[in-house]
Amino acid sequence: MMIPLVIGITLISFIVIHLAPGEPTDLQTQFNPKASSLAKQRLREIYGLDKPLHVQYVNWVKRLFLLDFGRSFSPDNRKVIDKIRERIPITISINVLSLIIIFCVAIPIGVLSARFQYSLFDKLTTVFVFVGFAIPTFWLALLLMIFFGVNLGWLPISGLHSMDYHELSFVGQFIDLAKHLIMPLFVSAFGDLAGLSRYARSNMLEVIRQDFIIAARSKGLAESTVIGKHALRNALLPVITILGFSVPGLIGGSVIFETIFAIPGMGQLFYMSVMARDYPLIMGILVIGAVLTMVGNLIADILYAVADPRIRYG
């Protein structure tokens, strides 16, 4: 089932990206007074762009079966897999860390808001998470940079390492990296708190109205046990779905915050590759994304089976 799906996804992506006007060679040669049309024709031949589209696709798929993503059309002509490989660790780390922060903050907020519905805490956190949801990322990032980076001088403004990173001890390097990550992580997590915490809250509200909770309470169980053990487990089931959806997002990265914080991640790479019509690189990222989406769904399905006794396969 997964293989035809991947082929379908790649076929559609391949056609769409080639339908977009413009070619990689345009950006290198157009408007360059010294680039003759002959030079341009040469470039087209080198990249195989002079062949019909279906031939290009078949060639690409053939190489894909050998796990060869080809070489980038950009002037560096590097292997697509190398370009992705050097950027993916940082993007995955940042996204995993930010996901952990989101879950650690959003679920308690959601559960407590549900438990104390319409209390002051509920109202305050509601305002808080929606402020986070509404604030434009780049604006918040710039404000934080001005305050912590320029005015107070506590945190580095952008990048991942200080210029003297190599001269630092191991602990020093760790602290240096951590300091660089504080603002990006806060900014990326803050915006996503709202969704998950509201989700957890409404699930929880639904669950605590059900009969088995009333039964548990009437047994005389402590409130903390009722909420923490019986209700929470049920309320968290849908969260697994969200987790499944997050897996492809892990490699996606975000153009906006990577650009603002000068973090060389996948979001930037993908954006640049689209703007430059770097077909092999675009397709490489899309294939990896498609595979991860499906793996994410598979993991979510398995976790469901583990977490929910009602679900049994086969």
């Binding site: 780049f138 980076g149 320029v150 580095p156 952008s158 650009t259 603002i260 000068a262």
Partner: peptide, 20 residues
């Protein structure tokens, strides 16, 4: 000579002010 890549011009200006 260090060539630092900062894709956002507003960030770059803040880095300049902060000495980065």
């Amino acid at each position: 000579f260090i060539y630092r890549i900062i894709p956002d011009s507003a960030t770059m200006f803040l880095e300049l002010k902060a000495g980065g």
